[in-house]
Design a protein around this nucleic acid. Sequence first.
DNA 1: CAGTGGTCTAGACCACGCG
DNA 2: GCGTGGTCTAGACCACTGT
Lengths: 253, 253
Amino acid sequence: MQGEIVDKNSILPIYYQLFKHFEKQIRGKQLQPGDALPTEMEIAARFGISRMTVRRAISELVSAGMVYTQKGKGTFVASPRLDSVVFNLNNFYDEIRQKGMKPHSELLEARIIKADEKLGRRLGIEVNTRCLYFRIVITADGEPLAYETKYTVYAKRTPILESELKDPSLSTLAAAHSDATPSSSKKVLMVSKTTEEEAQVLGVSPGTPVFLMIQTIFDDDSKIIAWGKSLYRGDRYKLTSYEGWNVEDIKNS
Amino acid sequence: MQGEIVDKNSILPIYYQLFKHFEKQIRGKQLQPGDALPTEMEIAARFGISRMTVRRAISELVSAGMVYTQKGKGTFVASPRLDSVVFNLNNFYDEIRQKGMKPHSELLEARIIKADEKLGRRLGIEVNTRCLYFRIVITADGEPLAYETKYTVYAKRTPILESELKDPSLSTLAAAHSDATPSSSKKVLMVSKTTEEEAQVLGVSPGTPVFLMIQTIFDDDSKIIAWGKSLYRGDRYKLTSYEGWNVEDIKNS
DNA sequence: CAGTGGTCTAGACCACGCG
DNA sequence: GCGTGGTCTAGACCACTGT
């Protein structure tokens, strides 16, 4: 009986069991890149299930990048894509916590300012518009890791809450203090050398290489409502990307 | 008639038309974050289509991050996620071409070497194992942009083709010259300062900040089969990430 | 032409959330 | 208990691929 593989009485959905079955076959090299899977009708017949259920399982395999389909031909095992790279830079607080360290953010400066010409250009607003200006240093176990400078339009004139500094996401700030809703963001990651002032804040020597991220928040009308600059210490921070099918194995090497 | 929105005789699939319909409603703010979509049965009835087709459209919306579903409750419009960042670093050749420049790679050195202790550790192989060693500089319109050093196990002893340098992907090299198949890869992005030698190759002054990417290719058994180091000029290269729902609009600002 | 995956239907039963 | 989304079925027709 083939009933060993797909159990109709299981709590797990059939399509999921079938997905796992083929995943195992591919990871275990019983099915190699370029090999054809059985046709959808064959799979349905063999396991005594509906073709739509088979298709659901296959579509999960496609999403996972493990197979690809060709209309009129069949479904084939894909080769792992190792060329493209995806770097995820999540919330810095979570990143620190994930490494078992204790994050803390310290407010260096927070003021309401009137935009000068340079800031007016950055935020796409008129000179003298009221803005919120922030400088924060984020530490892990007491050691400074990141230095962030942020500006946002200050339209609502609501008080600045200390809790906003706990997790200083620029889009959250913009949502709270500008009168528009954050809709899109642009982030640019560059490398830079610290200035005297930055080096002092980060506790490194001037000229140390750092990651520099410029962040811009846009509203519905693609108008800029917030701008931020983040420096991450190059000697303490890096971005890692894993790709392929047996990624779990290599994370420990 | 509601027939204006979904045309059963169109070449476009019904689920796709329905997906586009809701996409427009959400982008146009007729449906705002938190708002509930009509129930699947209602949508099916209203447009005279099957519930499965409605579900297909909704699942596309879920994939796009525009709505989320809650079992027993309904389907709701999501808020754009602007906090997480995803940086894509694709094939460097394509990146250059995309900017309308002409990429070229120049071979500085290519030799078969016997692994010393340091390389043996990096590749997880025994000392004196035969390895392929490469140094390449990638230029755009004649200006050096990247400097790459690569090692891979040299098991097959097949000749090194010049075409391999045209698009020097480490996993391709490993596939061609090691006796194993690349299965996974790990990439780490860091910042660094150029040494004298690196600065000369890249045509910058020593100490210039650069992106440094260390790349490791693994085979099926999670054994290392290739190792590479890439330097990207910090003054000429940056990573950009867009997020939100009207991303196309802000790319031109 | 026969066979494949892509779309679609009109039902069905289930587990879940809420009043 | 009722309505919701989640799963599943047994059909159907289509466009595309190969011969």
